[in-house]
């Protein structure tokens, strides 16, 4: 008897899921090994991270603040993937969303109940506008959105730095590199966790419903899987591509709104905190499923929160980046391996 590897045409869902879980565990194991080699007790550290995160309501509230933006950017990237578009620019759209919301809050007079919806609308619109050019380039000239969305991130990031340290700098002189505190804040729901989190969770559910039980969702699924067959059936492939990519930008922009109006309270450079890039990881881990994004964004939030604890132990934040990189690497390997199965062969000789 001998063992043999067989490649299957498609990975069964339970195997794909198991591969995801295993990839996370493996990444944690490798990180632990590296820690141990650097002379840090990984078990002790893990215990600290877990207790700091889950052991107190402060920890859980911090977790919620990280969870929310990751949900928005994760959903943004996942929605794009639904139609085969890689929105690498969630980082930039997030920044622009924050910029637009802050602009409304700082310079438009009005009551809170009117300003908040206006900020949300402006942020979503800003995010959508930020991806408009890459979207049109992809839809009409077949220019890869990967590069164009990525490059616009740097423009957006620098624009926010410039605005926050230049024309919109806090006139009171108390803050060095941010705008003044926004007069309008997103109300909290629990401790310091603001409405951004429930809104994001609600959006994930709504998107899941849209993609599974609407005709539009079916058409987007078809267009994303094979534009040829969608065109053959007479679906407006280009229109769907544009709509989905703009929706993706708007979601990332919304993330920025919640961050500036809920968590930070001011517009400052680097407000996006890499959430846009981490959103790519979240979406890929979730296999672009909106409900899956909830799970993977939560996991990513735990890891990020762990990073903060690690910093108190004298480890750099880069540890977290390395860890997320490892997870993605193992997830990619796991995706491939999920196609294989071990089979016993009855040996003839």
């Amino acid at each position: 008897m001998r063992l043999k590897l067989q490649r299957l045409h498609s990975a069964p869902p339970w195997k794909a899921f198991a591969a995801r879980v295993l990839s996370v565990l493996l990444a944690l194991a490798v990180t632990a090994l590296m820690m141990a080699m650097a002379g840090i007790d990984p078990i002790d550290l893990a215990a600290q991270v877990l207790s700091a995160t889950f052991g107190s309501s402060f920890g859980l509230e911090d977790l919620g603040l990280l969870f929310s933006p990751l949900l928005f950017t994760g959903l943004a990237v996942a929605v794009g993937l639904r139609i085969g578009a890689w929105n690498i620019g969630a980082e930039g759209q997030f920044n622009i969303g924050a910029l637009c919301a802050a602009g409304i809050a700082l310079f438009v007079p009005g009551p809170d109940w009117a300003l908040l919806p206006a900020m949300i609308a402006a942020g979503a619109l800003g995010g959508a506008l930020w991806i408009l050019v890459p979207t049109l380039a992809r839809a009409y000239a077949d220019v890869s959105e990967l590069i164009t969305t990525l490059l616009l991130n740097f423009v957006a990031l620098l624009l926010v730095y410039y605005v926050a340290t230049g024309p919109w700098l806090d006139p009171s002189g108390r803050a060095l590199a941010t705008t003044a505190r926004l007069p309008v804040r997103l109300p909290e729901v629990w401790g310091i966790v603001h409405w951004g989190l429930p809104i994001a969770l609600g959006l994930a559910v709504v998107l899941a419903v849209i993609f599974s039980v609407t005709r539009w969702g079916y058409e987007v699924r078809m267009a994303g899987s094979n534009a040829g067959s969608a065109r053959y059936a007479g679906m407006p492939v280009r229109r769907h591509l544009i709509a989905v990519m703009l929706l993706s930008g708007a979601l990332a922009g919304l993330g920025g709104v919640m961050e500036v109006a809920g968590t930070v309270g001011r517009l400052q450079g680097g407000i996006s905190n890499n959430y846009g890039y981490l959103g790519i990881m979240v979406a890929v881990l979730a296999r672009a499923a909106p409900l899956g994004v909830i799970a993977s964004a939560f996991l990513m939030a735990v890891i990020l929160n762990g990073g903060i604890v690690m910093q108190t132990q004298g480890l750099t934040t880069n540890t977290v980046l390395a860890m997320t990189g490892l997870i993605l690497l193992f997830a990619a390997i796991g995706d491939e391996l999920a196609h294989y199965r071990l089979r016993r062969l009855e040996g003839r000789n």
Binding site: Y218, R221, M222, S225, N226, G228, S229, R231, Y232
Partner: peptide, 16 residues
């Protein structure tokens, strides 16, 4: 290339 979306389910393709 156009009659079917190979990666989508039998159901999705059959009701096209």
């Amino acid at each position: 290339g156009s009659g079917l979306a190979p990666a989508l389910s039998v159901t999705d393709n059959t009701v096209l």
